[in-house]
Design a protein around this nucleic acid. Structure first.
Length: 313
DNA sequence: GGCCAGGGGATTA
DNA sequence: TAATCCCATGGC
């Protein structure tokens, strides 16, 4: 086990980051830490603010990584400096979210309330292939089941990445592995009709190369969108998620049922006016529309939880 | 552009 | 027990 500590981290809450629907491979532990895997790196992470009165002020981010010697994954054998730089990138630590929050609040009145719900949200820099797979599975699906499907894929067809506190971790299968499978092979993962989309997309990515997907990060939004949207099982909503969560296009504004709810309730849009919502986000939030989306999404989820609690009492 | 099937499981009525 | 919902898309 190796421990990395990064000091002076602001606007950081594991609950907000891992709970805002952007990722599916991290699980909350009873002590409030999160355990999961990113780019083949197994880790347990926790955050402690310097001043408990100011939870979103500067604090220490601790990352415990476990890697087995025989495992020679993509980041295997990295020097400590490189490892720190990987996690800094993954947690988007070089972006000043405090400044972004201030800007968003100044441009819009509803945002203030939304940001208060998820002050410590950050957009993770996830692997494109994993994000493509995850969000194809996410279509018309709920988060617990999406997680189950992804874990099942990794455990049955992925590569063993190591163990953390007794739990075995697997990376997601490579495109060439998925491309060689049939719907019957995938039946154990209960992907439903998404299995066919996944196989078709894996064949396409295998042909084009996984690097093509990574290279899209350097391309324009338009080029990214048209390539990603062309994959089987990817419509405009899923494409926007992939652009925002892994291709670093922070201006994308994915509109799902929750966003429709929040845009309807707090901004007064008609529930099916997705175009109006997107245009409004682009005009109002501009380059930070994706980050604004995360605050709004998390805010709505929180609000819904509270509504349910009230009902059950 | 509108409509409906696709899986399956959890939640609600 | 039945209906509804879920971070939608594909195909007609």
């Amino acid at each position: 086990m190796k421990t990395i500590t990064i000091e002076g981290v602001k606007d950081f809450s594991p609950d907000h980051i891992f709970g805002c629907g952007q990722c599916f491979r991290w699980e909350r532990q009873s002590d409030g830490s999160y355990e999961g895997i990113a780019k083949g790196n197994i880790a347990r992470i926790y955050f402690e603010a310097q001043d408990p009165e100011n939870p979103f002020g500067p604090g220490t981010l601790t990352i415990e990584t476990t890697r087995e010697e025989e495992h020679n994954g993509q980041t295997g054998g990295l020097q400590k400096e490189q490892e720190i730089s990987f996690w800094r990138g993954y947690f988007d630590l070089d972006r000043d979210y405090g400044k972004i929050k201030k800007e968003l609040v100044s441009r819009d009145t509803v945002m203030g309330e939304a940001i208060k719900s998820g002050e410590g949200i950050r957009i993770l820099d996830q692997e494109p292939w994993e994000t493509v797979v995850s969000f194809i599975i996410s279509s018309n699906n709920n988060i617990p089941r999406i997680k189950k499907c992804i874990n099942c894929l990794a455990e049955n067809f992925g590569q063993r990445a190591g163990t953390c506190r007794g739990k075995e971790y697997y990376s997601l299968p490579e495109p060439r592995v998925l491309a060689a499978l049939t719907k019957e092979d995938l039946a154990c993962c209960r992907l439903g009709y998404r299995a066919g989309y996944l196989i078709k997309t894996a064949v396409k990515i295998k042909e084009d190369g996984k690097e093509k997907l990574e290279d899209l990060r350097e391309c324009s939004c338009e080029d990214c969108f048209s390539y990603i949207k062309n994959l089987s099982g990817v419509g405009p909503k899923v494409a926007d998620c992939i652009l925002l969560f892994s291709l670093r296009k922070k201006n994308r504004f994915p509109v799902d049922v929750w966003m429709r709810k929040v845009m309807h309730e707090l901004y007064g849009f008609a529930e099916d006016d997705i175009k109006g919502m997107s245009d409004f986000a682009e005009e109002t939030f501009g380059e930070y529309a994706g980050i604004a989306q995360q605050y709004l999404y998390y805010h709505m989820r929180k609000k819904d939880e509270k509504r349910k609690e009230k009902k059950s009492r």
